[in-house]
């Protein structure tokens, strides 16, 4: 837990959410292995990281609400519903594929 290495992961946005992320669906990221308090990086930290460093759209509230992912946005950790993985407390592992899918956009 002492290393400063970054965790390589891929992050994907779909269901209309990519609009908030410069219309780019897939990102390969190096996430700092520890969060602000030195705890292992979890999904909550990833979400903050995305908001601060990746998202250029000012409408942060369309992605984050009350400190967590906005209701109506599904999070899949290696294809599994994040609710099966501990939600935002899930500690990000090397090579993880984390996907955010909006259900809010109509057709």
């Amino acid at each position: 837990m002492q290393n400063d290495e970054a965790v390589p992961i891929t992050v994907e946005f779909s269901g209309g959410l990519e609009i908030l992320f410069s219309n780019q669906k897939k990102y390969s990221l190096s996430l700092p292995s520890q969060d602000e308090s030195g705890a292992p990086a979890n999904v909550a930290f990833l979400v903050r990281h995305l908001c601060e460093n990746v998202m250029k759209d000012p409408r942060k509230e369309l992605f984050i609400l009350d400190g967590t992912v906005r209701p109506g946005i599904l999070v899949l950790i290696n294809e599994a519903d994040w609710e099966l993985e501990g939600e935002d407390q899930y500690e990000v592992q090397k090579g993880d594929h984390i996907m955010f899918v909006s259900t809010l956009h109509g057709g």
Binding site: S14, G16, E79, H105, G106
Partner: peptide, 12 residues
């Protein structure tokens, strides 16, 4: 998602 269906998702 799991069936890889091709759908469109942009807000009007």
């Amino acid at each position: 998602h799991h069936k890889n269906l091709d759908y469109f998702s942009t807000e009007c």
